[in-house]
Design a protein around this nucleic acid. Structure first.
Lengths: 353, 353
DNA sequence: ATGAAAGCGCTAACAA
DNA sequence: TTGTTAGCGCTTTCAT
């Protein structure tokens, strides 16, 4: 397999082309080649200050010819800005996150920023360590989906005091940091309206226990809205976690009450509910409708395909980037902003009238 | 929005406590506090050279007390090593990647390295741009899953000449870079053995066209191994892409030949096949077995749960990290290594005898 | 084992 | 508009 190691590196005439790493072209060499000062070259190439048109062209030509590549590390040391943002996730394997990561990555790269990724394994201790590591690496900002509403708070608050920080998808206590999330209540209202419009009158709800904002808000919205369909509906609730297994188990608890709609707090729960209902011989959607939340890829693949609430992932990412941009470097003071984005109902076979 | 600009920066007594960002503690201050030179402090804290036990203790105490945090940017500029590796993916939304990303992230953070993430939207042009951006940011190394066997080659080869680079999961032409991937042929052999052992005699194959190594190797292994079951089996092949939709469509093409096993090149195809077979009223696994490849989370959730080949994701990540470590900084020369890891068969309901 | 000094490549004051 | 001069915080010779 081709290696070039046969050429002795220290022999005879120094031949740049044989170096392992090509000697880096620095500003100094571009300055020499274009006959002006290093500072001027810097200003042209970084676009920091106005420069004479003629000079600018000469400099750019020289830079091009020499193959100059700016050294971001040196730039970062001097300017105290790395052009890097840390993205801290509870668990990349949670099927809702990949599309969010994708949108964030694109939004940030479009601004010329690079993304440092951390996966916390759903552990607040690891989360705190990763946040610390990123701060040590001088990230310009942090984008963070907290592991836990309460147990993440301390690390998040402390980080938010040092760099601009935006919370995504989940909250972390009031006033801790800027945040952007979907309007969970509005999403649940869309589901209830749709079910009411298609004649369902005995809904029930499979939710998640705990203090995570998505869990709390979706449950509260169900309780508030379902009463309009059926005074007894708010009582038909089971709380577990956001998993397929829980969806299966909860159906066994709720099916005896003969609901005509099973509203689930997310798509994983709904997928489990769907499976168990089929095993029980229930007719979905004829006998009972099933709905989810998030619109993860699995939702469209379920059988029957799952009616769900789509989170506006692209806008979530764009809004997060915007919030970061609003806090100029070091601007960690000032009132916290909370942005709520409207979700969209995606009607599929699992609730077709 | 709160900016701190109301506090004139040069006014009166400098009050550190009111600064937006707390003044960073540097080596200089630790040196002053511990009564020795900056160089000594650096040696103690970075552990570069032997230092007197007494001095070391004093320095560490001072650093601790002042809350010293090393500045990685300055360190990187001086030492020419950022402690950062770039991870370049075709599409994070491909359900096989999140678990791989997770393992890689953990393996690298465990070595004190940070991970820069890039999502290429399955586009070689974006891929080349991201690689370039990472190189400009002085990543110590690159971990890369190429978008396309051929169209990624140029950018990959050029990057591999500048930093240690390991290809993951997919190849990119011979001798271009170190690589680590699952042994696709062995995986397919496991599937065929299992099906033979459970009495299946008329297998067929739904694969993917194109030159991606996974597509080619899995198809070749089917053709080579299926003949032992049935001389006509190698002919029962349909090629499309790695998607659920293709799985559904391919079943319509193959079902008329009444196979008793549908072997799919990945889990997405298998999920589609499973759906279409159910719609056609086929009995899985009684009448026909279905198998996938990769063991993505969806596989366990399918109904019936999918028999598949699990990629050893943790080992893949560990091996990739090891290959990187083997190439010391700048060591881009030397023979390329290719590591193949053995997969594991996961038997679930879709092939239960 | 320790210190002094010289930068890494770049940007930001300050002059001119 | 341009050049000159200082460093950013750290590691690393080279002395001692």
């Amino acid at each position: 397999m081709g290696n070039g190691a046969y050429a002795p590196s220290g022999s005879g005439v120094p031949s740049e082309g044989n170096r392992e790493t090509v000697a880096e072209v620095t500003l100094r060499e571009v300055a020499l080649a274009s006959g002006c000062s290093i500072a001027t070259v810097s200003r042209v190439l970084a676009g920091t200050r106005p420069v004479g048109a003629e000079t600018a062209r000469t400099v750019r030509a020289a830079a091009e010819r020499l193959g100059y590549r700016p050294n971001h590390v040196a730039r970062a040391l001097r300017s105290r800005s790395t052009g890097t943002v840390g993205l801290v996730l509870p668990q990349i394997t949670n099927p809702f996150f990949p599309s969010l990561v994708r949108e964030l990555e694109h939004a940030l790269h479009a601004e010329g920023r690079a993304v440092l990724l951390a996966d916390c394994d759903d552990d607040p201790v690891i989360e705190a360590a990763r946040i610390g590591a990123f701060l040590g690496r001088q990230v310009d900002a942090l984008l963070l989906i907290p592991v836990d509403e309460r147990r993440s708070r301390e690390a998040v608050a402390s980080a938010a005091a040092q760099v601009p920080l935006v919370l995504l998808d989940r909250g972390c206590g009031p006033g801790v940091a800027d945040s952007v999330a979907v309007d969970n209540a509005a999403g649940m209202a869309l589901v209830l309206d749709h079910l009411a419009a298609t004649g369902r009158r005995r809904p029930c709800f499979i939710g998640a226990a705990g203090t995570a904002s998505a869990a709390v808000e979706r449950r509260a919205a169900y309780e508030a809205g379902a009463a309009a369909l059926d005074p007894a509906a708010p009582g038909r609730i089971e709380l577990g976690d956001f998993s397929v297994e829980w969806g299966r188990a909860a159906v066994d608890l709720l099916w005896p009450s003969r609901p005509d709609a099973v509203i689930c707090a997310n798509d994983l729960i709904a997928a489990g509910a769907l499976q168990r209902l089929r095993q029980l011989g229930a007719d979905v959607p004829g006998e009972v409708a099933v709905t989810g939340f998030d619109d993860i890829p699995l939702a469209g693949l379920a059988d029957p395909a799952l009616t769900t609430v789509r989170q506006p992932v692209g806008e979530l990412a764009a809004e997060a980037a915007r919030l970061l941009a609003r806090r100029p470097a070091g601007g960690v003071r000032g009132p916290r902003r909370t942005v709520r984005l409207a979700p969209e109902l995606v009607i599929r076979a699992s609730s077709d009238a």
